[in-house]
Amino acid sequence: MSPLGPSSGRRPDGAAFVIAAILAAAGTVLIAEGARIPARGGYAGVGPGDIPVLVGWGLVALALWHVVAGLRGGRGPGRVRQDAVAILWITGGLVLQNLLLWQAGFAIASGIVFAFTAAAFGRRNFAVSLPAGILLALLVYGIFDRLLKLNLPAGPLETLVFGG
C-alpha cells in the first residue's frame, strides 16, 4: 500500500505512538500467556509456551521501532479525511445482521447488510435498497440452502417463500 498523503514535514507522528502502544500491549499479553503455559516441551525441548514468548518479544521490538520512527516523524497525518458515518453504516449493518440472523432469518438480516452498505455509499433510499437486498438474499438462500444444501438460518420469510 502506497503512502496515503504527502509527507508533512518532520514532526513526531502521533499515530506511530498509538500503534507502538498497541503492539507493546499485545506483545506483553503473548509473553504473559507463554509464561503461564506449563513447560511441556517433551523430547522437542520447545513447548507450546515458547513460541508465544518469541512472537511477543518480536512485537515488543516492533513497538520500539515504531517509537523511534515516530520520533523521527516524517509520515505525518497527511491523509484524506475519513467519512465516519459511512463506517458506522457498514459496521451497524453487520452488527444488526449478527443480532437478527437467528430470529429474522438469513434473507432479512442479509438484506439489512446490503441496504446499510448501500447507505454507506450514499444510497439512503431504503424503500428501494432494503427490498432489493432482501430479494437478492432470498435468491441466494434458495440456491445455497435449498439446491446446494448449505444450512442457512431460516426465518419467517424463508418459510413463507420456500416452505418449512
Partner: peptide, 16 residues
C-alpha cells in the same frame, strides 16, 4: 428475480 424466486420456491416447496 421475482420470477426466478417463485420458480425456485415451487421447486423447493414440493418435498419440504
Amino acid at each position: 428475480h421475482a420470477i426466478f424466486g417463485a420458480a425456485l420456491a415451487a421447486l423447493a416447496a414440493a418435498p419440504a
